[in-house]
Design a protein around this nucleic acid. Sequence first.
DNA 1: CGGCTGCTTGAACTTGTTCAACAGCGGTGG
DNA 2: CCACCGCTGTTGAACAAGTTCAAGCAGCCG
Lengths: 249, 249
Amino acid sequence: MYNLLALKLQRFAALSQGDVDAVGQISRQSIRTTRARRDIIREGDTPHHVKLIVDGWAFRYKMLPDGRRQIVSFLLPGDLCDLNVFLLDEMDHSIGALTPVTYAEMPRDLIERMCDHRPAISRALWLESLVVAAIQREWTVSLGQRTARERIAHLFCEIFERLDTVDLAEDDRCEMPLTQIDLGEATGMTAVHVNRTLQELRREGLIVLNNRILTIPDRHALQRVAMFNPSYLHHHNPKWEPTPSAAMG
Amino acid sequence: MYNLLALKLQRFAALSQGDVDAVGQISRQSIRTTRARRDIIREGDTPHHVKLIVDGWAFRYKMLPDGRRQIVSFLLPGDLCDLNVFLLDEMDHSIGALTPVTYAEMPRDLIERMCDHRPAISRALWLESLVVAAIQREWTVSLGQRTARERIAHLFCEIFERLDTVDLAEDDRCEMPLTQIDLGEATGMTAVHVNRTLQELRREGLIVLNNRILTIPDRHALQRVAMFNPSYLHHHNPKWEPTPSAAMG
DNA sequence: CGGCTGCTTGAACTTGTTCAACAGCGGTGG
DNA sequence: CCACCGCTGTTGAACAAGTTCAAGCAGCCG
């Protein structure tokens, strides 16, 4: 059986077969689904489970009192949400489903127990949150310094790259279910300006985008425009191994 | 002896006296200082220690290939940098000293050993990184949605609040060593526009700022302008206790 | 067919940028 | 002691990037 979470965590720490099995089990206990454009959890709610996105796209967002809304990150298959369970009485942001989403709910206490006995998993989860923070820093750079065109290009580069690591990109193509409104809320610009910026990128042959499929004819060209340096995604292999005793998964 | 790190970590988990002592010791082993406006570590460097800011202000920043620069966060006394030690071969961003900075260098392996034996500390460090991520999300919101005036106001609210929790704010005042250029690099605007925005805030009596001292006559008024909701800072008390056996520190 | 959502376009407008000049201040070296 | 330099803050005016408002179009689904 496909073990998405193990696949992810192995990027951060070497897991024993036992670790892999434990992770596989916990992530298969309770599978749920949401329809597109529904909230999965809302600011102010108390989270009870850690969730693993199994299929579909979701996004984190925060709203200002006057209704302005900022998407602060996208959650793709293999991503965890609500590690905040361990931190918050209340969510300080919301998570919404962009497409229909399938996710696994992993009860807090089970995760906790697993962490207690499996240092590699505990460590991998921690590193995962460090990577999430690194991505958030790069978004800060985009919004603070990049122009409209650079922001959109950068977002496309990031998403493509992230989908690629979970085998959801094909050659030079990936899904792109975001509407222009979504793109605007993620890049801090209006939908109108997103529209004109997309046209510009299309006109220059940097992207092809229709029917919710994004094609990037020349990845390096787009990366150059975006000033995209993938190092912040830390898509590398584990650096750390516990005392080597158990076999690898 | 003053134990800044223990003070910080206690916000996230209940520490035993043994935990407190361990943390105190590790954070006193190697104290270093930097002059103002020097880099503490640079993008591309390999970090070897986790650093704890003991005195002074530092900041994380990222540069784009063409020289644009974005400050992505400020590091105040009590803040940790380079938890990335556990993650990165190379830093994906730089850290610079804003003022003269005193910091403690804590060797990676000591931290690791401490975490292995002291689950409360391990947990507190993890939660600390979750809070860092939460702050970064709020910066994303600022840069994406807030206007110039709201951004500056928000930054001031955040910094004041954070200084307050480490006893570095007094009544309605705190230090503010940031130049207008720094403020610009943090808020994604030019120094010229920062200048005009500060004047506006001053004119309205929302802030007083001179000699690097910021005074906020009416905190709620400024928070209203900034749409500042402090919940993202998670300045609360520990939710989690290990099996209660050891005495509290 | 009607209504909805998302995409596109135009034109006026606003926010923030750029460029340039100057003032104040503190430190340094002759 | 004074002249000078570099850094920070301030101001003005022209400009550019992105927003707002408004209208129309295409595709989809019931």
